[in-house]
Design a protein around this nucleic acid. Structure first.
Lengths: 345, 345
DNA sequence: GTGGCACACCAAAACGTTTCCGGAAAGAAC
DNA sequence: GTTCTTTCCGGAAACGTTTTGGTGTGCCAC
């Protein structure tokens, strides 16, 4: 019951053969393999991961890093848990396990990553919440630890990432609003330090210019990606003169706070102000008027992340001939009532 | 070639001494210890966890198990991520790491736990979402793997748990409503299979009887713990004759759906119907009228969980002389507008 | 000078696996 | 009958760490 040695003795076979049998290696009689598997099942033998890891220098565990800052906790709405289903469905094919690694808010994410890989807790990492300059990426790339980032970054040179289609979303939102007659379109986004903030606002700017509308920095409202941030964005919005007729929110949660501020100011969303949110969040689903936003499948994204990550790992690359291509993940428009009215009417 | 051996060679000391120096063992000169620590820092040496685990049969990792079912993903609202801060602050004292283990929705939680401990991925586990009959608990108790459960269960005999104060919450809610003149008080709860559903409704029943109000099974509405469940509860509620004047919700999220159904039915929460929610959820915070509910600190709960778990582990028990007591975790009432009106007025 | 003792260190033995290497047995080819 | 393959298996060497038992110093007391 304890160890492969016991199992071998019980079968009266050498431990080498038992190991080969269990791991599907050649050089073992099919008859013997069956006996071994049956005995393992019967005695409830499961290989000790420490021994295996030590020998082959690999842990068979993939880490999904999560920043457990207060902001993430309050605003991410199980984004990561939604990812795990897709991730695991792929990893399970290779008997890999997934663990979520919550980086304590008082520890430097860079140090945390270093510690986790140096201690050999995981073989590879999935990063998220990338910064424009991200030391974690530089470190992992230099140390040649397989990883994939959910989000682009200026760091790390030529690494593999998957990122949401901010350009597409911003362009779609602007197109929609312009088609309804809007010209003064505000945007609420986090600061440029967060990669998302930078990329999104740039895409918004290009989309405007494509329509011949001049980009006005005053219409870019920098706030936190939260309900409170949305309230604050609303506060800034009503003080703009003339008041914008539309606003694009980079996080849907902002809509909750924005709506509240609008009600206070006597501005009716969906009638006096067109609103488009970005990523659909469960807790914004009930808003009245319903919010126009963009949807994606977290599960599918998880699958893509896992497959692309495995493609970067020599041991698994053969199974994923598509290779480790960085990709832009598309989102689907969900039309709501919040931007349904036309300005010309 | 890297590893403790190289460090030892670099210092011209035996590896045994290096190991003892790093781990704060006695039998090593303070002068030598300093040199070792300095060299380790300089060369960026971090002990290989696999080797260490193999030798001492312990992984120094604690697992927080999460059911990643669709329902959890949609409704738990980062409950677990909120816990990690408190957990880690305690575990860090002993150089223990925390990983979150999301059980795939298509795998039996019992098998998952077995696999994780048999593979020696973690030393101990924190369980949640306990069932009234929970095979995981029976297994861990029998295998003598340290664990703690967030939630009581009928399984496992004498194990250590921490559970929310459902009795206190139910009693407080009933007391409040009765004091305002309510007699027909409904409750929305999940089925009795979920331990929470069972315990909560029992507490509700006893509280009613304490006030001399007859318990009416028709007022117990069994629905899912979700927004949709709340909507459905509202649907059932308006069909009851005579209509209850108050309702207690076991999950605050239900309030969102309930409010929606009430609006449809022309019933105004906070005027025609008193509503009390249970655990404060971020995404219900904006409701109008504001919801009376119960609050707790996830961080503090995390600390308590970790300390109690460590108290059950021989290697750490000495640091937690309070011992491994099961405890009831209190919640604090947050009075809102949803039950402010008095029935007699 | 001898015994006892604390100190600081070294060498080697574990821990449970996987994997390399060699070799026995059984045929096959000549 | 010899040589050569093929098929299967056993022995033993790793992997990096902690821990045990042993050893050589000094120092003190007698």
């Amino acid at each position: 019951m304890r160890g492969i040695r016991q199992l071998a003795k019980h079968l009266d076979i050498s431990i080498g053969t038992v190991s080969r049998a269990l791991n599907g290696k050649p050089d073992v009689n099919e008859e013997t393999r069956k006996r071994v598997l049956a005995a393992a099942e019967e005695l409830g033998y499961v290989a000790n991961q420490s021994g295996r890891s030590l020998r082959q220098g690999t842990t068979n565990v993939i880490g999904l890093m999560i920043e457990s800052s207060k902001e993430t906790v309050e605003n991410s709405d199980n984004f990561f848990l939604g990812l795990t289903g897709g991730l695991q469905s792929v990893l399970a094919r290779h008997k890999l396990d997934l663990v979520m690694l919550p980086c304590p808010s008082d520890e430097d994410p860079h140090e945390y990553v270093k510690r986790m890989v140096a201690r050999r807790v995981v073989d590879a990492m999935i990063l998220s919440a990338t910064q424009r300059i991200d030391k974690r990426i530089d470190f992992l790339a230099k140390a040649k630890i397989p990883f994939i980032a959910l989000g682009r970054s200026s760091s790390g040179g030529n690494y593999t990432w998957i990122d949401l289609d901010f350009e597409g979303v911003a362009a779609c939102a602007v197109d929609r609003l312009v088609a309804k007659g809007h010209r003064r379109i505000a945007i609420a986004a986090p600061s440029n330090d967060v990669n998302l903030g930078y990329v999104f606002v740039e895409a918004y700017r290009r989309s405007l210019e494509r329509h011949g509308i001049e980009y006005d920095p005053a219409l870019v409202i920098r706030v936190k990606s939260s309900e409170q941030g949305g309230y604050q964005a609303g506060h800034e919005l009503v003080r703009l003169e003339p008041r914008p007729t539309a606003i694009i929110l980079i996080y849907e949660l902002m809509a909750i706070g924005l709506y509240r501020r609008m009600v206070e100011a006597g501005v009716v969303p969906g009638r006096d102000l067109a609103v488009i949110g970005f990523r659909e969040e469960p807790r914004a689903r009930f808003l009245q008027p319903t919010l126009t936003c963009f949807r994606m499948s977290l599960r599918d994204l998880g699958v893509e992340l896992a497959e692309t990550l495995l493609a970067t790992m020599p041991a698994y690359a053969e199974f994923y001939p598509k290779g480790a291509r960085s990709t832009i993940w598309p989102l689907e428009l969900v039309a709501g009532e919040s931007d349904a009215f036309s300005l010309d009417a």
